[in-house]
Amino acid sequence: MDLKLYLQRIGVDSLQPPSLTALRELHYQHLISVPFESLSFHCGERIFLDVEISYEKIVRRRRGGCCYESNGLFLWALQELGYHVVVHAAQINSNFPGLFGPPSHVVLVVKLDGRKWLCDVGFGEGIIFPIPLEDEREEEQNGWTFLMREEEEEWYLDKKVENGWRNIYKFTLTERRFEDFVEMCDYHQSSPSSIIFCKSFCSLPIPRGRVTYIGHRLISTELTAGGGTVKTTRDLTEEEIPEVLRDKFGIVLSRKLVPKDEDPTPPNYDYQHE
């Protein structure tokens, strides 16, 4: 794998030694260049916990990826660049009251200049820049406002919405290996509680908003001056989907996509106490 080709893929001009400025640029450029997507699974392909496969897909084939692919590739790049990175497992808020998914989402924490920074380039509505692990840390990023908070040795990432705060996920600082997520990678491709299984999607942040393809819809979300959002939805025919993926996300699929847009089921309660 060629680090320079990865940097070209995300629009970063040169190799820089570890610094907060360089880390912020890498994180942002990856997010705006590599779509968060589940399209492979809905084209009859498997998603693998293999950084070399993710590199071939994202860098050489100019595709996007799910959390394992994008964060796995970002982990490799940061390590190659000399950053001190630790892998953790987050539980995604299922939006069913009181229920979190299994500890399946890969998040990265970079130790830099005596502080810890949460990095996550593999979540559709998450942070835009690294955010420090500091209790009650509130930060505006690209128009969105995020909050880091700690409760009983668990860290929570919240996002501001019109009626308050919405939790995105939670995690502990138990260190994991990237290889530990093989079972969870399979889970997301077979569980009716997983968005990867239930929806064919592709998403990218745009200035003060986001553009997302799901099933037979294209959704544009724009932030308003008052902190609210305006969503515009366009219904798509199957013939229009390849054109939308190419024009909005730079993705050209080599296999036929089977659009899917089903609601996930509540996660298994056994995972709530992981």
Rank of each mutant, 00 (worst) to 15 (best):
K248L: 10
G11S: 00
F146T: 00
S19G: 06
T221Q: 13
V109K: 08
C66A: 10
P266E: 07
I195E: 14
K231S: 14
G250K: 08
C185M: 11
V258K: 14
V230H: 12
L218K: 12
E52W: 04
P259V: 11
L257N: 03
L218Q: 12
P242S: 01
P130A: 05
P267E: 10
V252F: 06
L147C: 06
R166L: 13
I195K: 15
I131S: 08
H30T: 12
G250C: 02
P103T: 02
P242Q: 07
L173C: 09
P130C: 08
P267K: 04
F123P: 08
F48M: 13
L5G: 01
Q8S: 10
R208H: 04
D180Y: 03
I196E: 09
E151C: 06
M184N: 07
V211C: 01
H30P: 10
D263R: 15
K57Y: 03
E80M: 09
D158V: 00
V51D: 05
S193H: 07
N142R: 14
Q8H: 10
S70H: 02
A90H: 02
L257H: 04
F178K: 11
T233E: 13
T221L: 14
P18H: 04
V244Q: 07
D2R: 07
G101D: 14
Y68F: 15
K170F: 02
N268P: 09
V106K: 02
D247M: 09
L147M: 14
G44I: 02
C119F: 03
P17H: 12
R9K: 06
H188A: 09
V161R: 06
L78P: 11
M148P: 14
V12F: 11
I206C: 01
S203M: 04
Q29I: 08
R176H: 05
A22C: 15
G72A: 02
H273G: 06
D270K: 13
P207A: 09
R177Q: 13
S200R: 06
R217T: 08
N95P: 00
Y6H: 11
P259E: 02
G126N: 10
R63V: 10
L236S: 09
V109H: 01
T172N: 01
T233H: 00
Y187R: 09
R62N: 01
G215W: 10
V252P: 00
L112W: 00
E179T: 11
V34I: 15
Y6M: 08
V86H: 12
V85F: 05
E222M: 13
P207M: 12
L75A: 04
K170G: 05
S220W: 13
E138N: 03
C43W: 10
L223R: 01
I168Y: 15
P97M: 04
T233I: 11
G98E: 05
T172C: 04
C67T: 05
P205I: 08
S70T: 09
L204E: 14
S33V: 12
F74T: 01
C66T: 12
T229C: 07
E262Y: 11
C198Y: 04
E80K: 11
P130I: 06
S19T: 03
V85I: 11
F48R: 15
Y83V: 15
E150Y: 06
G65F: 08
L223H: 09
V87R: 03
P97H: 01
E238S: 13
Q29T: 03
Y213L: 03
G122A: 14
A89N: 07
Y169A: 02
F36N: 05
F181K: 00
G124E: 01
R255H: 13
T237H: 00
R208P: 01
Q141C: 05
I214D: 02
P103Y: 03
T212N: 02
R246A: 15
